[in-house]
């Protein structure tokens, strides 16, 4: 079964691009445009991996990641945090959390795919 990815990104076109790319690579994608929307999506469903932008309106990526890591249901889900501001204080803090990885924008598609596959492979019980 294809791994399920939730992509959280406030820039609609970038969201679209990542979705197209990951779908083409054989992943099954769901999307949300900010942290709050992501939490709503996650109410009845847990993906295999989450890709989240760091700076978003309504609820930023760091708040989202922290919340997900504090809940037993979602704590083990690996998260790739995207940021256009690599040395943003929140990027550093996100990086310190378990099961997270920070990628800077603009990223190489291959880099995103490689990170994603590595994280899925490292998750116990994860399918990749």
């Amino acid at each position: 079964m294809a791994s399920r990815i939730l992509i959280v990104e406030d820039e609609p076109q970038l969201l679209q691009a990542i979705t197209i790319r990951l779908t083409a690579a054989g992943f099954s994608c769901e999307t949300a445009s900010n942290g709050r929307e992501a939490l709503q999506k996650l109410e009845g469903w847990v993906p295999d991996l989450i890709i989240a932008d760091l700076l978003m309106p309504v609820m930023d990526g760091y708040t989202l990641v922290k919340q997900l890591k504090s809940e037993a249901r979602t704590a083990a889900v690996p998260i790739i945090v995207l940021t256009a501001v690599p040395d943003h204080a929140l990027a550093h803090r996100a990086e310190e959390l378990k099961g997270t990885c920070v990628l800077r924008k603009p990223f190489e598609t291959q880099e995103l795919l490689a990170t994603l596959r590595a994280m899925l492979a490292a998750t116990p019980g994860g399918t990749s």
Binding site: E11, Q13, L14, I20, R21, A24, R104, K105, F107
Partner: peptide, 22 residues
């Protein structure tokens, strides 16, 4: 940094989508 890199990421992604013939 944010304002310049974000559109750049989008351009880069779509360029890659085109060149990878997706």
């Amino acid at each position: 940094s944010h304002e310049l890199r974000t559109p750049l990421a989008t351009i880069k992604e779509f360029t890659a989508i085109l060149s990878d013939q997706i």
